[in-house]
Design a protein around this nucleic acid. Structure first.
Lengths: 133, 133, 133, 133
DNA sequence: GTGGTCTAGACCACG
DNA sequence: GTGGTCTAGACCACC
């Protein structure tokens, strides 16, 4: 916790919000029972419309990742971490699969694909081992 | 020549069409001066709306990858292969970059990311060395 | 005296409180002039927010079902039993009407509706003849 | 098909919309593959805001009761009738259960409850046997 | 034409 | 203060 939004990303803003909450829960950045920022606060922080945040939160409630706490907001639901880890693998895995599929359609060989991946990974060195960002 | 379309792909159909033409030119599947199928024929082949094909062709003309040949249709333009190779690298590279970016945002380490890529590459062994698909 | 609250019921908590007081008065469980528990005590008993209890009491005062007794709290008002019996019929009757209306909209026949009602009535046998709950 | 909306119903408008579509599918009024009215048309018909209709439709898509048909709208999805019949029983059954529960809490006997149900059923005679509405 | 996203702002219910 | 609903209107992508 915390992340940023790219409105010109193709990916809908409300989806970026819900994904990043999923990721935060999956990685333990948000723990079960913890309250998440209110709709209005999150909207202020991300400089987006409260309705957009509300939509993301509503979707996460539908997936039982968030649950309402009467009168005080939304909290991470009980089974959420498991669901979020699964969802994370699915989301990332799907995107990897689809990129590779397209790369192959373009007649790139697996060797070339791997090379592009490696160079991208190296270019912007990872920083998530010991506290980056 | 030729490829298939997945209408429930997220990627717009017209873009799938134009991308795959770009890829075909980049890999030499379509050579300079070669005529491409008419809008109607392509639409019939791919079982999609002719307007959608027309839109892809229009876009490719705008990028000077296709050029009109009076009275007979559209052909691969002169400088196309170079442009298409560049475009291919850019398109694939961008998507790889964006997937890796998101994977990192989700707190996956580079090691885990590489593992997911490898497993995807191995899962559906490559078949583009000797003419598959 | 007294009942329980289901906070995840759809029905607002304060309304559950006021309804059940109305029902208690209607059925003679609370008699005219009898003091009802203080806001704080009631809140503690039901494990809900005192504001919520206060709101229910306020509403009941507005309907002249409760009346303030200087220096000691709220008591069941003089004309309350009659009003409460009427209110009970109205409240329950309205809900029955609305359920039946919706059931019919859903194309269930009256026969089917009656069957569902009967089965529900039988499933959890009544226990209010001789003092249950 | 077709129904009406009561905006001062307590039940959210978007929920009334989605419910009635569920009921229509459950009762065979809408069959698998059939297109449903467009968001804009439905909004015009019901005199409500298109966003409200869209929300109902979105929810139904999430439940795989509707599916998008590219460029032409939304259609009843494949497994929808089964899901809708189940959902209908659940929705109506729950409401019946909750009304009876409350009626009992109010100290009404089962006999009295049944009497109220019967009188309501008789009051506005059923008309869904042979083509009413 | 279709659905989808986003913004803005009002109003309500609940605690 | 919280979330939820609804309206209004703009803009976009797709067919």
């Amino acid at each position: 916790m915390f992340f940023e939004i790219d409105p010109s990303n193709g990916v809908p803003v409300y989806e970026q919000v819900s994904r990043q909450i999923i990721f935060a829960v999956a990685s333990g950045g948000l723990v079960v029972g913890e309250m998440i920022p209110s709709v209005r606060e999150m909207a202020r922080t991300l400089a987006i419309n409260p309705n957009t945040v509300a939509r993301a939160y509503r979707q996460l409630q539908g997936d039982s990742i968030l649950e309402p706490v009467r009168g005080s907001g939304l909290a991470v639901a009980k089974g959420a971490p498991g669901k979020c880890k699964t969802a994370r693998s699915r989301l990332i895995g799907q995107r990897i699969g689809s990129v590779i599929c397209e790369a192959r359609q373009s007649q790139l060989t697996d060797v070339e694909i791997r090379k592009m991946v490696d160079s991208t990974l190296n270019k912007s060195e990872q920083n998530n081992g010991k506290g980056g960002r």
